[in-house]
Protein backbone atom coordinates (compact mmCIF):
# COMPACT_ATOMS: atom_id res chain seq x y z
CA UNK A 1 0.00 0.00 0.00
CA UNK A 2 1.44 3.34 -0.93
CA UNK A 3 1.47 6.46 1.22
CA UNK A 4 -1.54 8.15 -0.39
CA UNK A 5 -3.72 5.06 -0.19
CA UNK A 6 -2.64 4.60 3.38
CA UNK A 7 -3.63 8.17 4.24
CA UNK A 8 -7.07 7.63 2.75
CA UNK A 9 -7.36 4.34 4.56
CA UNK A 10 -5.95 4.99 8.03
CA UNK A 11 -7.43 7.50 10.39
CA UNK A 12 -4.26 7.69 12.52
CA UNK A 13 -2.23 8.66 9.47
CA UNK A 14 -4.66 11.44 8.56
CA UNK A 15 -4.35 12.86 12.06
CA UNK A 16 -0.58 12.56 11.88
CA UNK A 17 -0.52 14.42 8.57
CA UNK A 18 -2.81 17.24 9.70
CA UNK A 19 -0.86 17.69 12.93
CA UNK A 20 2.54 17.65 11.22
CA UNK A 21 1.46 20.16 8.57
CA UNK A 22 0.10 22.51 11.22
CA UNK A 23 3.34 22.21 13.16
CA UNK A 24 5.31 22.87 9.97
CA UNK A 25 3.31 26.04 9.35
CA UNK A 26 3.40 27.55 12.84
CA UNK A 27 7.04 26.67 13.48
CA UNK A 28 7.91 28.18 10.10
CA UNK A 29 6.04 31.40 10.81
CA UNK A 30 7.25 32.03 14.33
CA UNK A 31 10.75 30.84 13.42
CA UNK A 32 11.18 33.84 11.09
CA UNK A 33 10.99 36.20 14.04
CA UNK A 34 13.20 33.95 16.14
CA UNK A 35 16.05 33.97 13.63
CA UNK A 36 15.73 37.66 12.71
CA UNK A 37 15.97 38.61 16.37
CA UNK A 38 19.04 36.41 16.83
CA UNK A 39 17.16 34.20 19.28
CA UNK A 40 17.83 30.70 17.96
CA UNK A 41 19.34 29.66 21.28
CA UNK A 42 16.27 31.04 23.04
CA UNK A 43 14.13 28.82 20.82
CA UNK A 44 16.17 25.83 21.89
CA UNK A 45 15.91 26.91 25.52
CA UNK A 46 12.15 27.35 25.66
CA UNK A 47 11.56 24.04 23.93
CA UNK A 48 13.67 22.22 26.52
CA UNK A 49 12.14 24.19 29.37
CA UNK A 50 8.68 22.76 28.81
CA UNK A 51 9.87 19.31 29.95
CA UNK A 52 9.44 19.82 33.73
CA UNK A 53 6.01 21.31 33.06
CA UNK A 54 4.98 18.26 31.08
CA UNK A 55 6.23 15.98 33.87
CA UNK A 56 4.46 17.91 36.62
CA UNK A 57 1.23 17.84 34.61
CA UNK A 58 1.46 14.05 34.28
CA UNK A 59 2.14 13.68 37.99
CA UNK A 60 -0.81 15.91 38.88
CA UNK A 61 -3.02 14.37 36.24
CA UNK A 62 -3.78 17.69 34.52
CA UNK A 63 -3.51 18.60 30.83
CA UNK A 64 0.21 18.78 30.02
CA UNK A 65 -0.40 21.95 28.08
CA UNK A 66 -0.86 23.97 31.30
CA UNK A 67 2.35 22.82 32.95
CA UNK A 68 4.36 23.22 29.75
CA UNK A 69 3.29 26.81 29.21
CA UNK A 70 3.97 27.60 32.87
CA UNK A 71 7.55 26.30 32.98
CA UNK A 72 8.33 27.63 29.49
CA UNK A 73 7.30 31.15 30.45
CA UNK A 74 8.95 30.95 33.88
CA UNK A 75 12.22 30.05 32.19
CA UNK A 76 11.87 32.96 29.73
CA UNK A 77 11.27 35.34 32.65
CA UNK A 78 14.17 33.81 34.60
CA UNK A 79 16.53 34.32 31.66
CA UNK A 80 15.45 37.95 31.34
CA UNK A 81 15.86 38.47 35.09
CA UNK A 82 19.38 37.01 35.29
CA UNK A 83 20.73 38.84 32.25
CA UNK A 84 19.23 42.18 33.26
CA UNK A 85 20.33 42.04 36.87
CA UNK A 86 23.92 40.88 36.54
CA UNK A 87 26.87 41.11 34.22
CA UNK A 88 26.04 37.64 32.88
CA UNK A 89 25.49 37.81 29.13
CA UNK A 90 22.19 36.76 27.65
CA UNK A 91 23.38 33.55 25.97
CA UNK A 92 25.04 32.42 29.20
CA UNK A 93 21.85 33.07 31.17
CA UNK A 94 19.94 31.04 28.57
CA UNK A 95 22.44 28.17 28.86
CA UNK A 96 22.22 28.03 32.65
CA UNK A 97 18.46 28.23 32.95
CA UNK A 98 17.33 25.92 30.20
CA UNK A 99 19.69 23.10 31.11
CA UNK A 100 18.51 23.43 34.73
CA UNK A 101 14.88 23.22 33.67
CA UNK A 102 15.63 20.26 31.41
CA UNK A 103 17.55 18.42 34.14
CA UNK A 104 14.69 18.98 36.55
CA UNK A 105 12.33 17.63 33.91
CA UNK A 106 14.36 14.44 33.49
CA UNK A 107 14.30 13.79 37.23
CA UNK A 108 10.57 14.44 37.46
CA UNK A 109 9.88 12.16 34.49
CA UNK A 110 11.80 9.35 36.21
CA UNK A 111 9.08 9.44 38.91
CA UNK A 112 6.62 8.48 36.21
CA UNK A 113 8.54 5.20 35.83
CA UNK A 114 7.80 5.08 32.16
CA UNK A 115 10.79 5.46 29.92
CA UNK A 116 8.62 5.25 26.81
CA UNK A 117 6.82 8.45 27.86
CA UNK A 118 10.11 10.26 28.16
CA UNK A 119 11.24 8.89 24.84
CA UNK A 120 8.07 10.11 23.12
CA UNK A 121 8.26 13.55 24.65
CA UNK A 122 11.90 13.94 23.71
CA UNK A 123 11.66 12.58 20.20
CA UNK A 124 7.99 12.76 19.28
CA UNK A 125 5.79 10.03 17.87
CA UNK A 126 3.44 11.51 15.37
CA UNK A 127 1.86 8.21 14.45
CA UNK A 128 0.43 8.01 17.97
CA UNK A 129 -1.38 11.36 17.80
CA UNK A 130 -4.73 11.23 19.58
CA UNK A 131 -7.72 13.28 18.37
CA UNK A 132 -7.37 15.56 21.41
CA UNK A 133 -3.72 16.24 20.50
CA UNK A 134 -4.68 17.09 16.96
CA UNK A 135 -7.36 19.54 18.09
CA UNK A 136 -4.98 21.12 20.55
CA UNK A 137 -2.42 21.63 17.80
CA UNK A 138 -5.06 23.19 15.55
CA UNK A 139 -6.26 25.54 18.28
CA UNK A 140 -2.71 26.57 19.16
CA UNK A 141 -2.07 27.11 15.47
CA UNK A 142 -5.04 29.44 15.17
CA UNK A 143 -4.01 31.38 18.30
CA UNK A 144 -0.42 31.78 17.15
CA UNK A 145 -1.27 32.74 13.58
CA UNK A 146 -3.83 35.30 14.77
CA UNK A 147 -1.28 36.68 17.24
CA UNK A 148 1.29 37.11 14.49
CA UNK A 149 -1.30 38.68 12.18
CA UNK A 150 -2.52 41.14 14.80
CA UNK A 151 0.91 42.14 16.08
CA UNK A 152 2.77 41.89 12.76
CA UNK A 153 3.65 45.60 12.77
CA UNK A 154 4.98 45.48 16.33
CA UNK A 155 6.94 42.28 15.71
CA UNK A 156 8.44 43.79 12.57
CA UNK A 157 9.58 47.06 14.11
CA UNK A 158 10.94 45.52 17.33
CA UNK A 159 12.89 42.97 15.28
CA UNK A 160 14.26 45.49 12.79
CA UNK A 161 14.92 48.56 14.94
CA UNK A 162 14.16 47.98 18.62
CA UNK A 163 15.66 51.34 19.61
CA UNK A 164 13.28 53.24 17.37
CA UNK A 165 10.40 51.14 18.66
CA UNK A 166 11.31 51.95 22.27
CA UNK A 167 11.80 55.62 21.34
CA UNK A 168 8.24 55.99 20.11
CA UNK A 169 6.92 54.29 23.21
CA UNK A 170 6.30 50.71 22.12
CA UNK A 171 7.04 48.28 24.95
CA UNK A 172 9.72 46.04 23.48
CA UNK A 173 9.47 43.91 26.61
CA UNK A 174 5.78 43.29 26.01
CA UNK A 175 6.50 42.19 22.43
CA UNK A 176 9.37 39.97 23.64
CA UNK A 177 7.23 38.10 26.16
CA UNK A 178 4.36 37.88 23.70
CA UNK A 179 6.72 36.14 21.32
CA UNK A 180 8.04 33.91 24.12
CA UNK A 181 4.48 32.90 24.95
CA UNK A 182 3.76 32.03 21.34
CA UNK A 183 7.05 30.14 21.18
CA UNK A 184 6.02 28.08 24.22
CA UNK A 185 2.66 27.29 22.64
CA UNK A 186 4.34 26.24 19.40
CA UNK A 187 6.72 23.98 21.30
CA UNK A 188 3.86 22.30 23.10
CA UNK A 189 2.04 21.82 19.82
CA UNK A 190 5.17 20.23 18.34
CA UNK A 191 5.83 17.75 21.16
CA UNK A 192 3.99 14.90 19.44
CA UNK A 193 5.39 15.56 16.00
CA UNK A 194 9.08 16.25 16.38
CA UNK A 195 9.61 16.16 20.14
CA UNK A 196 11.39 18.58 22.44
CA UNK A 197 14.92 17.96 21.21
CA UNK A 198 14.21 18.67 17.55
CA UNK A 199 11.64 21.47 17.79
CA UNK A 200 14.38 24.04 17.39
CA UNK A 201 15.21 22.61 13.96
CA UNK A 202 11.64 23.20 12.78
CA UNK A 203 11.83 26.72 14.16
CA UNK A 204 15.06 27.80 12.55
CA UNK A 205 15.83 25.62 9.52
CA UNK A 206 12.79 26.47 7.34
CA UNK A 207 13.06 30.13 8.39
CA UNK A 208 16.77 30.22 7.55
CA UNK A 209 16.04 28.59 4.18
CA UNK A 210 13.45 31.26 3.41
CA UNK A 211 15.82 34.00 4.59
CA UNK A 212 18.25 33.04 1.84
CA UNK A 213 15.58 33.44 -0.84
CA UNK A 214 13.84 36.76 -0.27
CA UNK A 215 14.30 40.36 0.81
CA UNK A 216 10.82 40.83 2.24
CA UNK A 217 9.62 39.68 5.63
CA UNK A 218 6.08 38.87 4.44
CA UNK A 219 7.44 36.57 1.71
CA UNK A 220 9.96 35.07 4.10
CA UNK A 221 7.13 34.08 6.45
CA UNK A 222 5.13 32.56 3.62
CA UNK A 223 8.13 30.64 2.23
CA UNK A 224 9.17 29.46 5.67
CA UNK A 225 5.70 28.08 6.37
CA UNK A 226 5.81 26.33 2.96
CA UNK A 227 9.20 24.75 3.69
CA UNK A 228 7.89 23.63 7.08
CA UNK A 229 4.87 22.05 5.40
CA UNK A 230 6.89 20.32 2.67
CA UNK A 231 9.30 18.96 5.30
CA UNK A 232 6.39 17.67 7.36
CA UNK A 233 4.73 15.87 4.44
CA UNK A 234 7.87 14.33 2.93
CA UNK A 235 9.23 13.52 6.39
CA UNK A 236 6.03 11.76 7.35
CA UNK A 237 6.08 9.83 4.08
CA UNK A 238 9.65 8.65 4.73
CA UNK A 239 8.84 7.85 8.33
CA UNK A 240 5.82 5.76 7.35
CA UNK A 241 7.38 4.04 4.35
CA UNK A 242 10.74 3.15 5.87
CA UNK A 243 9.66 2.92 9.50
CA UNK A 244 11.90 5.77 10.66
CA UNK A 245 11.50 8.17 13.58
CA UNK A 246 8.98 10.80 12.44
CA UNK A 247 10.64 13.82 14.07
CA UNK A 248 14.09 12.96 12.78
CA UNK A 249 12.78 12.32 9.24
CA UNK A 250 10.95 15.66 9.12
CA UNK A 251 14.02 17.52 10.39
CA UNK A 252 16.34 15.88 7.86
CA UNK A 253 14.03 16.83 5.00
CA UNK A 254 14.12 20.43 6.27
CA UNK A 255 17.92 20.21 6.36
CA UNK A 256 18.02 18.89 2.79
CA UNK A 257 15.89 21.82 1.60
CA UNK A 258 18.21 24.20 3.42
CA UNK A 259 21.28 22.62 1.81
CA UNK A 260 19.78 22.99 -1.68
CA UNK A 261 18.92 26.64 -1.13
CA UNK A 262 22.23 27.35 0.59
CA UNK A 263 24.03 26.22 -2.56
CA UNK A 264 21.65 27.38 -5.30
CA UNK A 265 19.85 30.47 -3.98
CA UNK A 266 19.91 33.07 -6.78
CA UNK A 267 20.54 35.95 -4.39
CA UNK A 268 22.43 34.60 -1.42
CA UNK A 269 23.62 31.14 -2.47
CA UNK A 270 27.09 29.65 -2.50
CA UNK A 271 27.15 29.31 -6.31
CA UNK A 272 26.35 32.98 -6.74
CA UNK A 273 29.06 33.92 -4.26
CA UNK A 274 31.65 31.79 -6.06
CA UNK A 275 30.67 33.19 -9.43
CA UNK A 276 30.90 36.81 -8.27
CA UNK A 277 34.20 36.28 -6.49
CA UNK A 278 35.72 34.60 -9.59
CA UNK A 279 34.55 37.58 -11.63
CA UNK A 280 36.24 39.96 -9.21
CA UNK A 281 39.47 38.04 -9.48
CA UNK A 282 39.24 38.04 -13.28
CA UNK A 283 38.61 41.76 -13.58
Amino acid sequence: MNFIEAILHYDFLQKALITSVMVGVICGVIGCFIILRGMSLMGDAISHAVLPGVAISYLLGINFFIGAVATGLLTALGIGFVSQNSRIKNDTAIGILFTSAFALGIILISFLRSSSDLYHILFGNVLAVRPSDMWMTLIIGIIVLSGIYLFYKELLVTSFDPTMAAAYGLSTRFVHYLLMMMLTLVTVASLQTVGIILVVAMLITPAATAYLLTNRLSRMIFLSASFGTISAIIGLYLSFTYNLSSGASIVLVATALFALVFIFSPRHGLMRKWRTSTKEVAS
Partner: peptide
Protein backbone atom coordinates in the same frame (compact mmCIF):
# COMPACT_ATOMS: atom_id res chain seq x y z
CA UNK B 1 7.25 60.48 22.52
CA UNK B 2 4.84 60.47 19.61
CA UNK B 3 6.11 63.91 18.56
CA UNK B 4 9.77 62.94 18.58
CA UNK B 5 11.71 61.06 15.90
CA UNK B 6 14.88 59.26 16.93
CA UNK B 7 17.30 58.10 14.24
CA UNK B 8 19.82 55.58 15.61
CA UNK B 9 23.43 55.20 14.51
CA UNK B 10 23.78 53.28 11.28
CA UNK B 11 25.93 50.68 13.03
CA UNK B 12 23.00 49.82 15.33
CA UNK B 13 20.95 48.41 12.44
CA UNK B 14 20.98 44.90 10.94
CA UNK B 15 21.26 45.84 7.25
CA UNK B 16 20.62 42.22 6.18
CA UNK B 17 17.10 42.44 7.55
CA UNK B 18 14.57 41.39 4.86
CA UNK B 19 12.90 44.74 4.35
Amino acid sequence: RSHIAYVPQRSAIDWDFPI
